[in-house]
Nucleic acid binder design. Structure first.
Lengths: 185, 185
DNA sequence: TTCTGACAGTACGCTAGCGTATGGAGCATG
DNA sequence: CATGCTCCATACGCTAGCGTACTGTCAGAA
């Protein structure tokens, strides 16, 4: 990796966000991690803010569009797609860590992206639930509820892993149950 | 406020946590906000870490013990207490903001406190649900679920307020419904 | 009134991180 | 081979914030 691209930096920045929030996006430490120096960074970006922006864009892409596309491509019944969706998001620890940091951020620019991401995810959830036979209103209500439950779960898993596992047993059976109760008319 | 106490500093630090996370606990800016200087701070505390610690202790007290005591003192049926509990936590924006920041923090010391707080809250929820007639196992499962839903809700309310309100209508009726479904055997 | 101790202000050095300027290294192309 | 372009390293100045040392102030005890 003798020569870096802007995407390399954005990826590393997203990594930093996952482990320490936007505040952890610091040029010099990331440069060290990439085995480079600031010289490289300031070639690809104008300022630190642009790196944060790029990382957010990357996150937005990966955590919504990519996930949705992957689920849609796999196909299957709406219920099967729901189940696959839950499986994906629970596994992708890297993505959920970024989620946690970003949802807690107070910066307006971050919140704008987060809101867009949340909206898109909820829209997709609602569309699946409509396909399952729910009315648009009910589908939307359930989608919002499911999404907020999802947020709470990753939060709790992150801050105190034992608490959840001890009362829920297997995560995959838990996801089964959640999907089941969401789909039930 | 010509003379400050250690508690004044801790309170201001908790405020800083609410609005910017633990990273926002910076001695000099807080000194300015208190109309003082570092000279005061380093009289009351040995180092910045001690201030963070004090703020966390304050949060732990207020967001668990105080809330629980207040609900218990008001009395009423377990269901009424549950309802009162939800009303309290949804209103206390200051507390929930701190919650959001702290649940997202990666520092082991913070996570230790957060885990203790979560455990205590879940324990209290479970005890109320047992009083409502649930078996211990069921009460605990529901308590964990309710708590994680709570976390998700404050998260969503914080990062994108409109998303929740638009699909849920009145927050107080929402709380009614949640309590109702929790209590139902 | 004087003295003492609790409390606060001021001045200083130190580190981390941002941003800039400048000087290469290496490759491509004439 | 010379030239120029792309990419990176190094060195520098600047700010925010931590922690320390010393100096001041004021209330109450003696």
């Amino acid at each position: 990796m003798s020569r870096l691209s802007g995407d390399d930096w954005a990826l590393a920045a997203l990594d930093a966000i996952s482990s320490g929030g936007v505040a952890a996006v610091a040029v010099e430490p990331i440069a060290v991690r990439l085995g480079a120096t600031k010289g490289s960074f300031y070639w690809h970006f104008k300022a630190r803010g642009d790196l944060v922006e790029a990382a957010l864009a990357l996150w937005e892409q990966r955590s919504t569009l990519d996930v949705i596309a992957s689920v849609e491509q796999a196909g299957g019944s709406p219920k099967a797609r729901l189940r696959r969706l839950f499986g994906l998001v629970f596994d992708a620890a890297a993505l959920t860590h970024a989620d946690i940091s970003l949802h807690a951020d107070a910066d307006p620019a971050v919140r704008e992206v987060v809101t867009r991401v949340s909206r898109r995810r909820i829209d997709y959830l609602a569309s699946l639930l409509r396909e399952c036979g729910h009315t648009p209103r009910a589908a939307r209500r359930r989608a919002v509820f499911a999404y907020s439950a999802f947020l709470g779960n990753i939060q709790l898993m992150n801050s105190s892993p034992n608490l959840l596992e001890s009362s829920v047993g297997s995560l995959s059976r838990y996801a089964d149950a959640v999907v089941e109760s969401l789909v039930r008319i």
